[in-house]
Write a protein that binds this DNA or RNA. Structure first.
Length: 435
DNA sequence: ATCCTCCCCTAC
DNA sequence: TAAGGTAGGGGAGGAT
């Protein structure tokens, strides 16, 4: 690592000044840090500043827009037979939006984060490719990032702008193909079967997105969703890549196990403990053996994935099965009444979202994070630290009919879990069944 | 067999 | 000081 480039000092000063101006103008950063302890509207202010909340809600929101036809509805994909799939992904989305709006930032290492504190535990949400040259990654604490790159330019979130850019990008994607499956604000699958030369189509799509938004997009092309997504990894940043069906098998062998869909941290560990180190190792196991070790579905899915087999289709949004709201940061209670009051806010939040979605529900789940024995000070400021996760579900005879009904059931479950109020580090409420 | 509950895991 | 959400799928184990 180390500095890949020497930046022009005057330009860097100007860029830093611009970033400082953006932070000063950011409403979210006004005032002292808030928690459930000192902010009566903590649930609301937390959600308005949470990037994970923004990301989590995006898909739901966009799917509603598509289902209601506001931004053009999806049509079914062309049916069985050879397909051509695009996986479209805007490059380091949040960072790109900032860079596109402020020419001073281009070519300099930049990250999106709530705090610029070089000693702090604020998490980096998005880092541009210049910053990545220093080893800076999403999820890193600011303290670590500033050690790697003291010159790092830190800009605050701009959720309104992300929304605008995302909608523009989606309009362009839907003009390219009527069959679009949203994955996130910055990522979608397109079925472009029969729409002409895929490489030209992808070039035009990327050019259109860049012209409209100032942000670059990468496109992976493949005969199924898995291969298309793999192709995107090769295409990034600001590129496109077509992995032909004939090369798919060898492409799979070049991957790490953790690159396979469904293989995260825990499954990687599990596979390693079984002596499986590579995709080739995985291919050597029979489907039955994988199923015996990992479960029926998981084993079969891995057997398929290791061979580049993926039978999913690009699908329109499905009917929602659950809806929930949770807060696992800044949760500190001084009394049982504090916890009860907080649950009331969450119940209102869930009830409001149910109303907005026009759904009902019969099953209410309470999720709790309980401080693990002996763990008092999380590494992350106001974080939940190391916790045990607990949950309880209550089923109503009739669909829940008010925030108060939800609140009452939630309080009963909270009581039944017997967690001292001072040990609670996170709370969530979710509604399911019969939505 | 088929459910339900209480988890865990994953992906974005 | 800083904003660790959301939804879906699946598995273990028990009840029906």
């Amino acid at each position: 690592m180390g500095a890949p480039v020497a930046y022009d000092p005057a330009e860097m000063r100007a860029a830093q000044a611009e970033a400082a101006r953006l932070r000063a103008a950011c409403d979210m950063l006004k005032g002292a840090p808030k928690s459930s302890r000192d902010d009566p509207n903590f649930v609301e202010s937390f959600f308005s500043a949470s990037r994970l909340h923004f990301i989590g809600m995006w898909k739901t929101r966009l799917e509603s827009l598509m289902l209601s036809g506001v931004i053009g509805g999806p049509t079914p994909n062309p049916g069985p037979g050879a397909q051509v799939i695009f996986h479209v992904d805007l490059d380091c989305f949040f960072a790109s939006v900032a860079e596109s709006e402020h020419p001073l930032f281009s070519g300099k290492p930049l990250a999106v984060c709530h705090s610029n504190n070089a000693k702090g535990t604020a998490e980096i949400s998005s880092a541009n490719y210049e910053a990545r040259k220093y080893g800076i990654r999403a999820g890193m604490f600011m303290a670590g990032a500033k050690q790697l790159c003291p010159d790092l330019i830190v800009v605050p979130y701009n959720f309104e702008r992300y929304q605008e850019v995302s909608e523009q990008a989606y309009k362009i994607m839907m003009a390219c193909s009527a069959c679009v499956q949203p994955l996130s604000c910055d990522e979608a699958f397109l079925d472009v079967t029969g729409l002409g030369d895929p490489f030209q189509l992808a070039s035009r799509l990327r050019a259109d997105i860049q012209a409209a938004t100032g942000c670059t997009a990468s496109v992976g092309i493949g005969h199924n969703l898995l291969i298309a997504r793999l192709a995107t990894k090769r295409a990034k940043p600001d590129g496109q890549c077509h992995i032909q069906e004939a090369e798919a098998a060898s492409a799979m062998l070049s991957l790490e196990l953790s690159d396979l869909p469904g293989v995260g941290w825990a499954t990687s560990k599990k596979l390693a403990s079984l002596g499986l180190q590579s995709v080739a190792d995985l291919q050597a196991w029979s489907k039955a053996r994988l199923q015996a070790e990992l479960g029926d579905k998981t084993g079969a899915a891995l057997w398929d994935a290791s061979r580049g087999i993926d039978t999913r289709r690009v699908a329109p949004p499905a009917v929602r099965k659950s809806l929930g709201a949770e807060v696992n940061w800044g949760v500190r209670f001084d009394s049982p009444q504090d916890a009860t009051r907080f649950l009331g806010k969450l119940a209102e939040e869930v009830w409001t979202r149910m109303g907005a979605a026009g759904v009902q529900g019969r099953s209410l789940t309470l999720k709790l994070k309980k401080r693990k024995e002996g763990v008092y000070n999380p590494v992350k400021f106001m974080g939940h630290g190391i916790c045990d996760n607990l949950s309880r579900t209550h089923t109503f005879h009739r669909p829940a009919h008010s925030a108060a009904t939800i609140h009452r059931a939630a309080c009963d479950m909270l009581t039944s879990l017997h967690v001292p109020h001072a040990d609670i580090r996170g709370i969530g409420l979710g509604m399911s069944r019969g939505l």
